[in-house]
Design a protein around this nucleic acid. Structure first.
Lengths: 236, 236
DNA sequence: TGTACATCAGTGAACGCGCGTTCACTGATGTAC
DNA sequence: TGTACATCAGTGAACGCGCGTTCACTGATGTAC
């Protein structure tokens, strides 16, 4: 401890410090994996993805998931990862993406069978927010991390995976029905997406803030948004 | 390049790879700093914060700002940082926070002299979003990064620094005036904050997405939010 | 049926790196007597 | 006015670390002739 800085209270859990690495190391206990049979090379790929995802959830920080830790968890050597992924970034991305495509599915499922587009919008928003909060670490990696670090696939895939396309269609339909005031559906969909993302992202970034119950927050945002889109123009 | 992964196109710009480190190194050219005079020890502190902030902006990634790079930029030795900050996390946080308190100020300033609470809310939202997008890296570090990595000071300071308290007061006032429908002002303020944060956060996280002009987005969100809060209850 | 060969599914050791931080120190400047 | 001493504002070298990745290899399994 240096002289003037001696009064510091910071615990310092930076991803680079050896102390924090040690935290994530209940690994090496795993037994050495047995080599896969001849045609079964892709088994390892799945196991690697599973382990990566586990570590992601356990550490809560993509930066603390190292290739070596993944290999220890799997029970293979670390070069073995390179038989299936070109580099660490691709591995992390793949592990997140596998869970993440579920978001689009969940939103699509939530909407199924609901005829009224406003009701469907509400269901979609609810599903999106709930999923995001419950899968915080993937959400963070996919939606809150700079592209340069993690976003390899074409950016155009984003809407489909995030359930954004569902949003878009619902809003188009609602406008055609007269349930929402006429506007550019793409732009309105972006606003709604941003609003919904905002709830999830703030909670993920600041979990120790004294948030109200999630359900209240969802209801209020949905009322706010659908009320706002449906009403006559606001004061301005 | 390994065998099965040979077709990979990923450029691999992970924060850990030596390649990406090299990108951020137009440093060592700086002249050696001269030692400060007797009572002027705090000059170095300011210079360290400046350099940290510069690197933060240049790299666009807090993980790529190392204590050694900061020292090189300043022109001092890296142990010198420890005369003023207990560890790297504190340094990074301080550098961001220094710029970040401006957000609260900007929001407060934007609101000054506007009597109508709805107009004031719109001005506040506009100021918040603009500031966030223009100071993407600080915003990312402060508002989109897990607390464990970067959030040392008490979480209760967040609202004041983010201009959230202004929002809260405006909403209280608007409700008292009858300009907004009665509700719990804290919860409504959270929703509005989330909506506004959503716009900023998505643009920062996915800069290569084909976003509409920021102004349009701001206007639409403001209309959506204020219209929604003011109108009678939406369909539900 | 035998056997040379190709392929698959990996492994162990090593490279080189930059990092956060600590340690013992140093020279200039002020202060007490 | 001199001088011993304390303090300030740092420095240079080193420690130990875990990392991403590459390299050359190995043993088991299938395949062609």
């Amino acid at each position: 401890v240096s002289r003037r800085a001696a009064d510091a209270t910071t615990a310092s859990s930076r991803s680079r410090s050896s102390a924090s690495r040690r935290t994530a190391s209940a690994d090496e206990a795993r037994p050495r994996r047995t080599r896969a049979k001849r045609g079964q090379g892709d088994q390892l790929r799945e196991q690697i993805l599973d382990a990566t995802y586990e570590l992601l959830v356990e550490t809560g920080d993509a930066d603390r998931v190292s290739t070596r830790a993944v290999a220890r968890r799997v029970g293979c050597s670390s070069p073995a990862l390179y038989l299936h992924f070109p580099d660490r970034a691709s591995l992390l991305w793949a592990a997140c993406n596998r869970q993440f495509v579920k978001l689009g599915d969940v939103v699509r499922l939530a909407v199924e069978g609901i005829d009224d587009p406003i009701d469907a919008l509400q269901a979609a928003g609810r599903a999106y927010i709930t999923f995001g909060v419950e899968h915080a670490e993937e959400y963070r990696v996919m939606m809150m991390t700079p592209e340069t670090v993690v976003w390899n696939p074409p950016i155009e895939d984003l809407p489909g995976e995030a359930g954004f396309d569902v949003l878009h269609q619902l809003i188009e339909r609602a406008m055609a029905d007269g349930a929402l005031r006429d506007d550019d559906p793409s732009l309105v969909a972006l606003s709604v997406w941003a609003a919904v993302h905002g709830i999830v992202a703030l909670r993920i970034a600041k979990p120790s803030f004294d948030w109200p119950p999630l359900e209240d927050d969802i209801d209020r945002m949905i009322r706010l948004v659908t009320g706002g889109l449906a009403g006559s123009t606001g004061s301005s």
